[in-house]
Amino acid sequence: MRSSQSSKQSRGLTAIDGAMALIVILLMVQIWLLSATLDAYLSGHREVALPGALVSGLLFAVCGALYLFVNRIEASAKNDDAR
């Protein structure tokens, strides 16, 4: 029983680590996107601002979803511990 809980917890931590790695990658893409959009904007290409903001918003939404996913895993692990 104890070992099943421990393996579940370990799986949860692996999932959280995976989510964290994905968020880091998305964040790097977002940082690049912001600098590229700013550079293009300062060069006079204002038309890139809208797609840049949309893609950045999408990346932020994915990061937010991953954060909620991590919260859910943590809550389920706590519930298992409490039982």
């Binding site: 959280i16 964290m20 996107l33 990346l59 511990d81």
Partner: peptide, 29 residues
């Protein structure tokens, strides 16, 4: 639970940074 808390806090920080990037893009727009 400590391992969960430290990871959650880091992910929270990363998500807030992502929000800051989004706000930056909105500011340009």
């Amino acid at each position: 639970d400590e391992r969960y808390v430290s990871r959650r806090q880091l992910i929270k920080f990363l998500t807030l940074t992502s929000m800051a990037m989004f706000v930056g893009n909105i500011w340009i727009l």
